[in-house]
Each structure stands twice: as structure tokens, then as C-alpha cells.
Simulated scan of single mutants.
Amino acid sequence: MPIVTAAGHPDRLVVLESFPEPRSTTNPYLVQLMRSLPADVQVMTFTWRRALTASYDVFHVHWPEILPRGTTRARTAARRLLTAALLLRLTVRQTPMVRTLHNTGPHEPGGRLERALLRWCDRRTTLWIRLTPSTVAPSDGPVVTIPHGHYRDWFADLPLAPAEPGRILFFGLVRPYKGVEDLLDAFAEVPDGISRLRLVGRTTDDSVRERVERAVLADPRIGARLEYVGDAELADEISRAALVVLPYRRLHNSGAAILALSLGRPVLLPSGSTAEELAAEVGPGWVETFTPPLTGATLTSALAHSAGPDRAAAPDLSGREWPAGGSAHAAAFRTAAALARRGGRR
């Protein structure tokens, strides 16, 4: 699978992103990406009307499974039809598609028709953007590596609290694949009364919510806020943690890990290429790893290391600056447009 690097192009490029106009709850990664693109790239945010009727040079997809999914059966059926119409339009108009591989497949599987639409989307992808060097794209085609940008600028104006000894934090969307139940089981094995566990983030899974609520009632050391929190509250929660634990059962890429490191808090991740690459990048002492299953002994050891003197004053995130990331995205879009003009995958 070739790695490509594109030179700049003087013409203005119009890129349709797959996410709608940002709101207060929009992932800051997407907002920072939009802001980092150079002036010769015009960004259009997603509406179905724009996707099906507007003129644009490149369609940039982040999580394609969102396109065919609705909140009701009727809306899901409608969005599947709209997704098929969009893919057909892209094919007929020979519009290139660029996909960022936040994950190589949906975290929650869909039905047979959704899977067929996503395979079509994979086949139609002109160029892949991966966030980590070890990622393998779902289908053939050019691949560029653009690291996930940091969050230091996004949170720069918010006050940060000092880390509290023994405080463990999990934050982010609380979904089954993220291993929250494993974290609760492991924390139950931690014998001391000093350590505390805090869980912060919205969940739509009733079984996970019930499991967390039972744990909170059973152990006074555990606290939870299972809802969306704003930037100021999130920065406060992260900065008060001595250790951020992300016990994902599948770790492909983690914006949460980058966020924790951006605010100067060490993270514990499951071992594997993603964690190892990140640990080597940011410097010693900032990324601890464990081989599943997660245990109380692992948590205790990681907490002890988090208080140790073996790391630099801040993790090295110099390879994740947004101006460089924006320029790299613009180059990737222009490469995809050039490939389409030459008759490559469209």
C-alpha cells in the first residue's frame, strides 16, 4: 500500500466534510481541523442537501457508519437511501473521497444493508488518512499518515487543578468496547482506602450504566457523572486525576489519550502497537501499558509510577501541531483530486 506525499496546488479546493456545522458538543478534533486548513481550502460542513446538490471537489469522511444511521427505524431507512444516493452521485460525478481512519470499522455493528453500504464506501475511497503508522486501511489505495493533533491550544485558557494523589479517571463516551466494566472489576481489587475512581462521560448503553451505578453504590471510593460535560468541567476532571486509565478492549487510536497528555496527565493503555508508538513519541513516564486483563495490581503499580520522578515536565507532542496537520490534510485532499483527474479511484 503506497505512502504518498502531495505538493501544494495553487487553485482553491472545495472540501465537503462529513460532519455538520460545529456545536458546543462537537468533537474539538473536528473544529481544530477546520480551523487549521490553509486559506486555499474552502470547507463545507455536511447537510444532506449540500451532499446531494452542491458542487465540491473532495468528500472527506470521518466515521462513515454515522451516515446510514438514524435515531428511529424510519430515519435509519431514509438515511440508508440517502447514503446510497450520495455514493452513486460521487461515482457518477467522479468526486474523490478521502477517509480518516479514526477506526477501521464501526465500534457497534450494524445490519446487513449498512455493512454493504460501508463496503461500497471503502471501495469508493480514493485516499486514506491514518492517524497512527501501524494502521492498515480496509482496502487498497494511497495512504498518508497525519497524527491526531493535540488539544493544548483548545484548553489553553481554562484553569487546571493540581493532580490529586490516588485519583484515577476514565472519561469519554462510555461504550461497551471501552472496558469500563473491566476497570470497575480491577479497581475492586485495589485494597487501600486512598485510591479513588472517577468515571465521566455520556452513555447510551443501559447495561453499562446500570453496572456503573451499582459500583458507585457498593464502593464509596467510586464516583461517576454519566453525562456530557463541557470543556471547563472536563479540563477540571482531567487535571485533578493522577492517572487517566483507558482500558479499551480494542485500541486503534485514542483522542482521549491525546487529550489527557495535552493536559499533562499520564495515561494507562492496553499494550499493542498504538500504545507503544505513543509511548515512544511522548517520552518516558507518560504512557503506561498493561497486558489484559486489567488488574488491581496493575492499577496500583501505574499509580505509583504516575507519582514518580522518571518523566519530563511535559509530554512531547511537537509532532502533533495543528498548522502542520492542516497543511498535510490540504496536501492529501489535493492528491485525491489529482488521482481522480488522472482516472484513479473516485
Rank of each mutant, 00 (worst) to 15 (best):
M1S: 09
T5Y: 09
A7L: 01
R12K: 11
V14E: 01
L16D: 06
R23C: 03
Y29A: 02
M34K: 13
M34G: 12
T45I: 12
I66N: 12
P68D: 10
T71I: 07
R75L: 13
L82Q: 04
L88F: 09
L88K: 05
V92L: 14
R99W: 14
T100Y: 10
H102M: 06
N103R: 14
T104D: 08
P106I: 05
E108G: 02
R124K: 00
R124P: 00
W128I: 12
T135W: 13
T135C: 10
A137N: 11
D140H: 14
I146A: 03
D153G: 04
D153H: 02
G166D: 13
L173G: 00
V174L: 15
Y177F: 07
L184W: 06
R198Y: 03
R211G: 03
V212C: 01
V216N: 02
V216D: 07
A218E: 14
L246S: 01
Y248I: 06
S254Y: 00
S254L: 08
A256D: 01
L263C: 05
P270F: 04
S273A: 15
T274R: 06
A275H: 06
E281L: 09
P293T: 11
L299T: 07
D310K: 15
W322S: 07
W322Q: 05
G326V: 15
G326D: 12
A330F: 12
T335S: 09
A338C: 02
A340W: 12
R341T: 01
R341W: 09
G343L: 12
R345E: 00
